[in-house]
Design a protein around this nucleic acid. Structure first.
Lengths: 95, 95
DNA sequence: ATAATATTTAGATAGGCATCTAAATATCTA
DNA sequence: TAGATATTTAGATGCCTATCTAAATATTAT
């Protein structure tokens, strides 16, 4: 996943709300939907984007599909972004 | 600046390259342009977006306009993003 | 098997965005 | 004041994306 694609995945307000919800605990689509004012197909689309960015995962449990944050990936992303934004390159060799 | 707008400003590869260049040192548009395969009007457009996101500033020096990173803002943004991505809300009160 | 529930897929649409060329503005130099 | 250099603004175009409705798929319950 490139940094651009990650930023893009994170740049949509509904997707941020999805992540915020999943930070609390894993939950099915129907429950995520309660926090958002979009139709289920639109939500499904956003879940797909976050899945393709590897930020979340879904597993089926009966009729429901339970989504959860990929915590280790999210942490890696946080580090990657922090490095991009804060690393001072003034005195670094070209590594 | 909302988190969404910040992510969006950072999600474009050319804008990331601009930030990367300005991490080294401030420089005029003409020098930034050397790193990118886009026309000057397109570059101007990207600089405008980064300026509106308050991530960079430009000052005129003669014929040139020198752009530089707003270091304090960039640091704040890094913290904001880190908080968004890593803060576990499971056991937080609703503050 | 049928009906009900949960979610995704298909297909269409509207708005946003990155890009370009051409022209305008600002500054410096001769 | 011209002409040259640096950058931005104007206007157009094509692609990407968020959104919707309708239909399809998957699972459970009757």
């Amino acid at each position: 996943m490139s940094l651009s694609q990650t930023f893009q995945a994170l740049s949509e307000p509904n997707r941020q709300k999805i992540i915020d919800a999943l930070k609390k605990r894993e939950m099915p689509v129907s429950e995520i939907a309660l926090n958002l004012n979009i139709t289920l197909p639109t939500l499904s689309h956003h879940l797909d984007i976050l899945k393709r960015a590897d930020l979340i995962s879904g597993r089926r449990e009966g009729q429901q599909i339970i989504y959860s944050l990929n915590l280790s990936v999210v942490e890696e992303v946080a580090e990657k972004i922090a490095k991009f934004l804060t690393t001072d390159t003034k005195f670094r060799s070209t590594d």
